[in-house]
């Protein structure tokens, strides 16, 4: 009995294996490319074309959620695709995840806003040719009646007050954190530090501190539902203003500066990163007049002010702003 069964299995497996191979060939193309050595950087972009969508090469970037949720990329994407003749694939994730995609070579460039993490990323050799192309500010928003009384304080002072009030009465005062290693989350940690508190302590201190683990938009919605305080970037805040019930309470502070950077993935370190020439073109394009002007006008009609600020023309004048070469020097 057993031998017959084995024979039957053999007879069925052969067609199955053949089907597998056929499907594999269809799905993945018949010639998987070996990772290109860095020396071919000057050669034309040879990317293994994905047979289901033949032809146009695909340039992949990872971007932060806050840029995405405001719809800025919907604008920019078709522009770049037309200009560079590639398909621009935009994957969005928090800064932490985006950098991880970069390390793995799953994307060819990242657009993020976390200076400390970026510095490490570059120091470790994963990223090159960092440039800045836009900036805006953070703000602290919360319930209109401001139970913790933080209006018009500095960011650090406000955070301290929220902490104290929250510890006292978590039903009255709550704070929602992104909790996802995003750029916003990193900024939040910096402010806690500036307020004289250790982040690990804040995290565990009580039920007033809520780690949501979600993107900026959903966190704003949550804050609105629960009457919590929240650190948000001005662009997402404005885009969501009509949908949420939180008021801007603290809008001024050095720590609030938020600069958006683009970093190319280094093919020498990440062997599987492709399309460096396209990445360079992308970086330069973000710094170009065309894009900078577009950014300057994006959102004005709807919100009365641009959601992001271009760097060109010296729009960024405070301490911590990127140096001129960081936002004007073309990448070669």
């Amino acid at each position: 009995m057993k031998t017959l069964l084995i024979n039957r299995i053999r007879r069925i497996s052969i067609p199955i294996v053949i089907t597998c191979l056929l499907l594999g060939a269809i799905l993945t193309g018949c010639a998987p490319a070996a990772p290109q050595p860095a020396a071919t950087e000057n050669a034309s972009d040879q990317v293994t074309t994905f047979p289901i969508i033949p032809g146009t090469p695909r340039f992949k970037i990872a971007t932060t959620t806050s840029l995405y949720d405001t719809g800025l990329w919907n604008y920019l994407e078709p522009m770049f695709e037309k200009k560079a003749g590639v398909k621009l694939d935009i994957v969005y994730a928090g800064t932490g995840v985006a950098l991880e995609y970069g390390r793995r070579g799953d994307v060819d460039a990242v657009v993020v806003h976390d200076p400390a993490a970026e510095a490490k990323f570059i120091a470790d050799g994963y990223g090159i040719n960092k440039r800045s192309f836009a900036f805006n500010h953070f703000l602290i928003a919360g319930p209109a009646d401001d139970p913790a009384g933080i209006k018009n304080l500095t960011p650090e002072q406000a955070f301290k007050k929220i902490y104290d009030a929250g510890m006292l009465d978590p039903n009255k005062v709550k704070f929602i954190s992104r909790g996802d290693n995003s750029g916003t989350h990193s900024k939040e940690k910096l402010i806690w530090q500036a307020a004289g508190l250790k982040y690990e302590d804040v995290q565990k201190s009580g039920p007033w501190y809520v780690e949501a683990g979600k993107g900026m938009g959903p966190c704003l919605l949550m804050a609105s539902e629960q009457g919590s305080y929240i650190l948000a970037d001005i662009s997402t805040f404005l885009a969501f203003k009509s949908k949420v019930n939180v008021a801007p309470l603290v809008e001024k502070g050095d720590l609030f500066l938020n600069v958006y950077d683009v970093i190319e993935i280094n093919p020498e370190k990440v062997k599987t990163a492709k399309m460096l020439p396209t990445a360079k073109a992308f970086t330069n394009w973000l710094m170009s007049d065309e894009v900078q002007d577009l950014i300057a006008g994006y959102g004005v009609a709807e919100y009365g002010r641009p959601l992001f600020n271009p760097l060109k023309g010296g729009g960024c004048a405070e301490a911590g702003c990127p140096k001129l070469e960081d936002y004007t020097v073309q990448v070669q």
């Binding site: 994957v91 793995r104 990440v270």
Partner: peptide, 12 residues
């Protein structure tokens, strides 16, 4: 791309 089947360019 940094996994065993990375060469097939399947992600995303």
């Amino acid at each position: 791309r940094s996994g065993p089947l990375g060469g097939l360019e399947l992600l995303f």
